[in-house]
Simulated scan of single mutants.
Amino acid sequence: MQLLQRIKNGTPITQSELASLEKIIYEKVEEEAKDFLRETFFKTLYIGYFGSGFAKSAAGILYWPLRQLSNKDVRLTPGEEILYHTLPYHDEDSLVILFAEPGTENLVAKTSDAVRLTGSRMLVIAHPLPEIILSRITGPSITIDYQDLPLAFIIAAAKLATMLSKSIGEIKIRTERVISEYSEISTIYNDLINKYKNNIADISDTIVRVKKVIIYTSPTLEPASNLLHWYLNTVAIESKLATISTLLSDISTSINYLFMETLSLIISTDVEADILREAKFKASLANIRSHLSELVIHTDPLTAPLYASLISNKIYTTVVEKMIKNA
């Protein structure tokens, strides 16, 4: 089944399918990237992305554990910024890890040229690239060619996170936790989905009913929120993405609630509990025409981006199943 057809059908992935996909991708990433990542001398690690959907989400899943565990200068940035505004003006030894969505092939080639000219190094994660593009890439490239491309990108990012955490992670206990949990995605999948099944059912029911969603996200869960936002737009569910603090402003001004019913979905960790309480309190006082739902990931913030992304994938497939049933 082709990628777009699977997206339209909302075909859920089983634990056995996930285990198989995880094994294949982990082996591919290990084979292509281990020598490249063995050299840990670099001033700055740029984790970039071309495309606003699953490439951006995968980049975020790689970024957050490294940002919190390492003393290295780790930056999450759009690929365009790396290409046009960073590499040409910074004389430094940089490492670039670039996630690229279909359609951005020429930008990948141009970035590779810029990396080579500035003495930096680059690892590319992309769908199969044309030979003419591959010939211009000097560093290794990891080809992701599977039915569920967004999920495959997420798994690749998780594997890269474990590899880099081993080499540049500074906090031993927390590094070991990331390595352990990011290496066993399929083994925890069913328990994870079962733990949040009520949230998944309630959120998907409301999305199908109102067909308008604003996802308010904490910084660490932006990868998962962005993935859900992208998924929903592929099936004509009107979705917007904003920070949690924006919700407080929106409630105060009623910008998003005057003329339509909207699901306000907060995706956060326990760390942002105070903002969630304030938002729920103000919403109850404002008498706004909106539904307010929450998805709070009760895990270590280091692993929350990955787990929330798996839940976002499940919310999406549940939404599509319901849409097909109601058609």
Rank of each mutant, 00 (worst) to 15 (best):
T104Q: 11
S20Q: 15
L45Q: 04
N256K: 13
I47P: 01
L151V: 06
K110N: 08
K8D: 04
S112F: 02
D270C: 15
S268L: 09
E176K: 12
I125D: 01
S312W: 00
T86A: 14
I173C: 08
R209K: 13
H90T: 10
G60V: 08
L232Q: 00
L227Q: 02
R289H: 10
Y216Q: 04
E238I: 11
I173Y: 15
I207R: 05
K282Q: 11
F50N: 01
A286S: 10
E39G: 06
K72M: 11
D113G: 04
I200C: 07
D205Y: 11
D148G: 05
M323V: 12
E80S: 11
T217Q: 06
K34L: 10
I25D: 00
V115S: 02
R67P: 02
S180A: 12
I24V: 15
V124I: 05
L164W: 05
D191F: 14
Q68D: 14
S290A: 13
V108S: 07
I315T: 00
L45K: 03
P219A: 13
E176D: 14
L21K: 03
I185P: 01
D73S: 14
I155K: 03
I267C: 04
Y84R: 11
L98M: 14
V271M: 13
K43L: 15
L192M: 12
T44S: 09
F153P: 01
M260E: 14
N199D: 10
D202G: 11
A308H: 00
I324F: 12
N256C: 15
M122E: 03
T303I: 10
S180E: 15
L292T: 02
T14W: 05
K56N: 13
E176M: 10
R209W: 12
Y257N: 07
L258I: 10
V210S: 09
E32D: 12
R75K: 14
H85E: 15
L263M: 15
R136W: 08
F153C: 05
L87T: 00
H90F: 08
S57M: 06
L134N: 15
K56H: 15
I297Y: 00
E181G: 08
I193P: 01
L18Q: 02
E170H: 14
I244Y: 00
A286H: 06
I200R: 03
Y231W: 07
A304L: 04
A201K: 13
T86Y: 07
K166H: 15
I173M: 12
K8F: 07
D300N: 13
L232A: 00
L151D: 01
F54N: 01
H229M: 04
E39Q: 08
T217I: 05
E30S: 09
P301A: 03
N287Y: 09
N326F: 11
K282S: 12
P219Q: 13
L69T: 01
K23M: 10
I171N: 15
I237W: 00
I188D: 13
T243A: 15
L160E: 07
K28G: 06
D148I: 06
I13K: 02
F153V: 04
V210D: 15
L227D: 00
I144F: 04
Y196K: 02
I185S: 02
E31H: 09
T246R: 12
S186L: 05
P128V: 07
S112H: 03
P301F: 02
V74H: 02
I7E: 00
L302W: 01
A279L: 01
R136N: 14
S52P: 08
A161Q: 07
T243Q: 12
